[in-house]
Structures are given as structure tokens and as C-alpha cells.
Computed example of a mutant assay.
Amino acid sequence: MSDRLTGIALTWRVERRDGIALGLTSHDRDLRIDGFDYRAAPGMTPSAVKRSDDLSADTMEVGGALTGAAITERALLAGRWDGARVAVAAVDWTSGTVIAELGEGRIGAVEVADNGFTAELAGLAALLDRPVAEATAPECRAELGDVRCRVALAPRRRFARVVAGDGAILTLDMAEPTANAYGGGRLRWFGGGNGGLDSAVAASSGDRVTLRSPPAEAPEGALVELIEGCDKSLATCAGRFANAANFRGEPYLPGIDLLTRYPGG
């Protein structure tokens, strides 16, 4: 029994949204299990794994050191690990066999401090915490281009090159097709230090776009894909997209903000 207990180690297989996979272990040396390498650096330290047989969410936390070979502070702050899929397992490091699958989830909140990091993992049961019924609102609840909106996004995606960057404001080598076309949309980075990341666009005007937060790396010369956005108002849905039939909001339904919604109300 003593040999069985001392031969147990924990492993984490982390798969980022851009397809990069990384194996980490709590053991003091690298392990190879089922043809996949699990690195001892950055020395992952887990909290207690909370599992339940009811509908409550499974959660845990893991912590580790920031190392250039595995996980860097810059990559964490840039959001490269946000939403990454994580599979946790207990293995026998003496034979390389999996003893138990402890669960899987996605990385949530990440904190960086004192040359280390702590990441919260939320299991699949956490999805049950979402509201069952949608609340009424004057704005559309669909996302531009999804199955409820039905606006075709293919003609509303364009590639451009970043000419200059000033914080969150980027100057491109092309102008927008309509006023504030990319406001509320997305900007995807191809190549360069920001390659593989997405940025939310707050507003656009002419050949300039304003991001909600500055890019992690210098943007000059980078190739980007711009995806149009929507302010979710009925006027924009009908006038710009001719899609009022699929509008998912209640712009004329009185609410508790009735007196403040209109000037002089």
C-alpha cells in the first residue's frame, strides 16, 4: 500500500483555444503518459478537488510558478490561456498509467502575483448556473451572425494591415465600409506577437479602430481580420442589416426604466 500511495502524481493537460496543448504535473520530474509529455515545471500545486453527485458545480484551483519554458506572465495577461480546456488526472508515475480521471473544465479567473499564478478551474456543471430564461430588454439578445440573428458574416469580414498603433487606437491601411461598422465587433490577430488572440472593438471611424483594451504586443505591421459588429438596436438591425424579422429584443415593451428612457418622460 505504501508503494501505491507514493507512486501517485497529478497531471494537467491544458489545451488552449489556438490549438496549443501543454502537459503539466505535480511530480518532481517530467512524465510521458500515452505518448504525451507532462512537464514538472512550473511545479503545479493543486487545491482540494471538490466533486459532488448533485448538480452543484465542480471547482478547484491550481497554482504554479511563471517560467519562460511553460507559462509566462505576458501570455497570461494577454489572455492566451483564457477559456483553455483542462483535464485533470491522477497517474502512477512509476508505470505511467492513469489511475483516475478527476475531471475537466475550463480556466476561469487567473491571478498573477509574486512570480507565480493561480488559476480557477470550473467544471462542466458550472454551465448549469446560467439563467434558464432570458430577461426582456430593448436591445437584441442575439449575437451578430449566430443562428438566431442569421445575418451572413462572410461578406462582413475583411483583412487589413495595421499601419500604426497608439494604445488601444489602431490605424489601418483601409477604411471601414460604413460608419462605425466594426463597433461591437471583433479583431483577430494573424502573426506577430499578438497572433492567435482576439480583441474586442469598441468603435471605429474611417481607417481607425478603437479596441476595448490595448494589445499585448506592438501591433505595427500586423495582419488582422476585422469582423463587423452591431449595437443591438432595432434601428441598426432594420436599417443596416435589413434583419428586423429576426430581432431578439422588446424595444416597445414598457419597463422600470420607462420614465428615464425618453427625454422629458
Rank of each mutant, 00 (worst) to 15 (best):
G192D: 05
R248F: 07
A203D: 09
G183F: 12
E176I: 04
A200K: 12
P215F: 00
G191Q: 13
L226I: 03
E217I: 09
L234F: 11
V209M: 01
A179F: 12
L259S: 10
G191A: 11
D173L: 07
G183N: 12
G249F: 01
I256C: 15
F159C: 11
V162K: 08
A175K: 12
R261E: 14
G255Q: 02
R156A: 07
Y182T: 01
L211C: 06
G206H: 02
T178W: 15
L170R: 05
T171W: 09
L258D: 10
L226G: 02
N246L: 09
E217P: 09
D207C: 13
G196M: 04
E225K: 10
G255K: 04
A154T: 05
P155L: 00
A160Q: 02
Y252R: 06
D166T: 03
G195M: 05
G264P: 04
L170W: 08
I256R: 11
C230A: 10
P254G: 01
D257R: 15
I227H: 08
A175D: 15
G239I: 08
G255L: 01
G206Y: 00
L197F: 03
A179W: 13
M174V: 11
I169S: 08
R186Y: 12
C230K: 12
N243F: 00
T260V: 12
R186P: 15
S199D: 08
A238V: 09
C237N: 00
T178K: 11
R261L: 09
G195C: 06
R186W: 12
L234S: 11
N180E: 12
G221R: 05
G192K: 04
Y182V: 03
P251M: 06
Y252T: 07
P215C: 02
A160T: 01
A202P: 13
K232R: 14
L253G: 06
L197P: 01
A181T: 14
T171E: 14
